[in-house]
Design a protein around this nucleic acid. Structure first.
Ligand SMILES: [Mn+2]
Ligand SMILES: [Mn+2]
Ligand SMILES: [Zn+2]
Ligand SMILES: [Zn+2]
Lengths: 147, 147
DNA sequence: GTTTTAAATAATAATCATTCTCATTTACAT
DNA sequence: ATGTAAATGAGAATGATTATTATTTAAAAC
């Protein structure tokens, strides 16, 4: 994964560059996102911030995660059911492998989709801006689970 | 695209095989799904059924689209914002190209992901059951649009 | 350091696609 | 034709996300 200090500094830099205030809540969120490894959802992020900010609002987490996303500092993985998940380590499109039992999401080390993206653009006439590739299955932990 | 009569017959066969009643609503829905080409959402399907079934409930559309999905007769494309879309022609995982302006969704003719799926299974230890690949961009119609 | 003020936050209401509930209706086996 | 479990229609409930607004605060100006 990316160096978390680098990621943190990058997020703070973006706040400054765009003229946003460096609130305690934002800096703490940047820290949580930069060290996050398991693609947390807002609830998980919210709970991690509870220690340092017992009065923090869930809306503040939503607002600022989306703010960091608008800077390209976090990747949002939207899901139609269940909560959206966030990747603060690799804030660019990349494949994910999702366990349908325990909801674990990991980043596999596989080749990119550059070739297929170009092929799709050629065939369809679309200007392709981004993509999303998810593999759904059952992780080895869940496979060996009894019951 | 697939032959719509074949698709329709396949859907009706699945209803019979699984012992579900052949209600007028289900048969009409099977017809709409089998001829659908633009990945309609439930609202669109609902409106198309209004002509023949003015009293039909939206819940019935949801219920039975999910029933056909459980038979593997329709592919659901879930979206975290906006409505889910359905493909009754190719009810198996395949790539999609989505226009972020007009929400058009098309099926591009590209090679499969079989190789990458195997690679991911090897690397992660997951048992991969399905996948989802979306390319997001702007279609040529929207690109040439003024304003 | 104090003051000023636009931006940010906390709390909570609103949204909206989807699912659930239940009274009524219907497919279909007998 | 009748009986019965399944299906439908109508509308309430759900739940993640977004919007609203009064209060607080970061940081610029003095
Ligand atoms: Mn990731
Ligand atoms: Mn399709
Ligand atoms: Zn698992
Ligand atoms: Zn378009």
């Amino acid at each position: 994964m990316a160096d978390s200090n680098e990621r943190y500094e990058s997020m703070v830099r973006k706040l400054k560059e765009h003229g946003y205030k460096l609130t305690h809540q934002r800096l703490a969120l940047a820290r949580v996102l930069s060290v996050s490894e398991g693609h947390p959802d807002v609830e998980t992020i919210f709970l991690r911030l509870q220690d340092s900010f017992p009065t923090m609002s869930l809306a503040t987490v939503y607002r600022n995660v989306m703010l960091f996303k608008s800077f390209g500092e976090v990747l949002e993985l939207g899901f139609p059911n269940g909560r959206n998940r966030f990747d603060g380590n690799k804030p660019f499109p990349h494949p994910h492998v999702i366990c349908i039992r325990c909801q674990k999401i990991i980043d596999p080390d596989v080749g990119s989709l550059k070739d297929m993206t170009e092929e799709v653009a050629d065939i369809t006439g679309f200007v392709i801006l981004t993509h999303r590739l998810d593999f759904f299955g059952i992780c080895s932990d869940c496979m060996t689970e009894k019951v």
